[in-house]
């Protein structure tokens, strides 16, 4: 007869990072993080929360309590599709979608997102493609994402790709801007330089609503 495994679970305060919550709250859109009353409206309005191992409400609670590692490694932040339902419905007007963006950026910056997880890879590929050409090319980005995460999935998508190709909805050539690339490069370079000097993390000038 096998015994059920039991484990003990306790969180020691010294293992938490209280600065983490403050950092997220200092990001644009994060300013109302500490106003959360844990009502769960975000979780129940979220169409993806049913797939999340932790609901958006729990992510907020954990972020401000300093559960940095758990939050950044969580699938939840990557399942957010930015549909903004939570942001619109939140009775405390917390910009939850923006907080999810801040957490995604933090996870990418610290390279702690779940391994072989396609969503952050897609985000990075998209980011790089736009940096290179100024526009995104759907098919190239998707192919590169599958190659890096689940190459076998590509096969399943070939049929769809061909269908789209036949109907003129799949551009194989690289989509390019019709001029202005140099200007765009200068713009992005300067933005990055300025951000590295002082991160754009300041409170808003005025209430948004």
């Amino acid at each position: 007869m096998s015994h059920p495994r039991i484990t003990w679970r306790v969180k020691y305060q010294e293992d938490l990072d209280l600065a983490f919550g403050r950092e997220i709250a200092a990001r644009p859109g994060g300013e109302d993080l500490y106003r959360c009353i844990q009502c769960g409206t975000c979780s129940s309005t979220c169409p993806l929360s049913i797939y999340m191992e932790r609901t958006p409400r729990q992510i907020i609670a954990m972020a401000r309590a300093g559960f940095k590692d758990e939050v950044l490694a969580s699938h939840t932040i990557w399942l957010c599709t930015s549909c903004y339902a939570c942001t619109v419905d939140c009775p405390k007007q917390i910009k939850i979608t923006d907080i999810m963006y801040a957490l995604k950026q933090k996870a990418l910056g610290e390279k702690v997102y779940p391994a072989r997880f396609p969503i952050p890879v897609l985000a990075k590929e998209f980011f790089q493609a736009v940096r290179r050409t100024g526009r995104s090319n759907e098919s190239r980005i998707v192919v590169r994402m599958f190659l890096q995460t689940r190459p076998w999935k590509l096969l399943g998508n070939i049929r769809l790709g061909l269908k789209l190709l036949r109907r003129g909805r799949l551009a194989l050539r690289r989509e390019k801007m019709d001029g202005g690339q140099a200007q765009l490069r200068m713009l992005l370079q300067t933005t990055r330089r300025l951000e590295n000097q002082t991160p754009a993390r300041s409170p808003p000038l005025a209430e948004s609503h």
Partner: peptide, 11 residues
């Protein structure tokens, strides 16, 4: 009625 049972953590 769609709600998160916050004490359980489930929608």
């Amino acid at each position: 009625i769609r709600v998160e049972d916050t004490l359980v953590g489930v929608v």
